[in-house]
């Protein structure tokens, strides 16, 4: 019984990880003028990416992903299709309400749709939570930390070598997602890497096919 208790304590402690420490800028003036890294959309955009998915055992597959994202309303429409043009998944999320229009197995689970929309929001939208700290990480990266309503943490960091990264941590500090943007490319969404730490880890490599701002039509009254 004592051994079991120790085992449970070990797993409990190992699951409670700590977030990286963010050191505040040296002066209050520096803190005021501090600008958080922002790889996020500023206007409504339509993006088409070639997506390479890597699963356990280095299994690879490729699909085409289409995203229509509006940061002002935080609405997302998305689709996944094969090179042959077969649509495997299509969904939209408007003000937090998710609607799946088409989902072929195994993309037909509710958790897949929810996770996919969350991943898209994490990539393209400014975190909606409160900015809790800003400053530098130990490696010199500029960092801003947000606390989400559900207790999760989002760090957005930037340094010369790695470019911009968004990391999401669970409320207990376990790293769940790493999204890396390549700053050297003309379009920051040209090449995006997403690493997911889940029960079944996976990674996605997104290469931009086309990006197009979506202008909202204005109608003049006669």
């Amino acid at each position: 019984m004592k051994r079991l208790s120790l085992l449970i304590l070990f797993f409990f402690l190992s699951s409670c990880q700590t977030l990286p420490v963010i050191h505040s800028p040296s002066s209050s003036a520096g803190e005021k003028s501090w600008a958080c890294p922002s790889p996020f959309l500023k206007e409504k955009y339509r993006l088409v990416h070639a997506i390479e998915a890597r699963m356990a055992g280095n299994q690879r597959s490729s699909v085409i992903g289409i995203t229509l994202a509006d940061p002002s309303s935080r609405s997302v429409s998305c689709a996944i299709m094969t090179a042959e043009g077969m649509v495997l998944f299509e969904a939209e999320s408007v003000q937090g309400t998710l609607r799946v229009n088409r989902a072929l197995p195994p993309f037909d689970s509710e958790s897949f749709a929810k996770n996919m929309i969350e991943d898209i929001e994490l990539i393209f939208f400014q975190p909606p939570g409160n900015l809790r700290s800003k400053g530098y990480l130990a490696d010199g990266s500029a960092a801003c930390r947000y606390l989400e309503e559900d207790g999760k943490w989002i760090d957005v960091t930037e340094n010369q070598s790695d470019g911009i990264q968004t990391k999401r941590y669970s409320s207990s500090g376990a790293l769940e997602r790493i999204i890396s943007f390549n700053k050297r490319t003309k379009n920051i969404y040209q090449r995006i890497e997403l690493q997911a730490d889940e029960t079944f880890d996976y990674s996605l490599l997104l290469n931009l096919i086309e990006a197009q701002p979506v202008k909202t039509k204005m109608f003049k009254r006669k």
Binding site: R46, V48, M81, E84, V87, I209, V214
Partner: peptide, 13 residues
């Protein structure tokens, strides 16, 4: 030449 038409696309892929 394959053209994919979808509502989410403003022009075919």
């Amino acid at each position: 030449v394959q053209k994919k038409f979808m509502k989410i696309l403003s022009r075919p892929l």
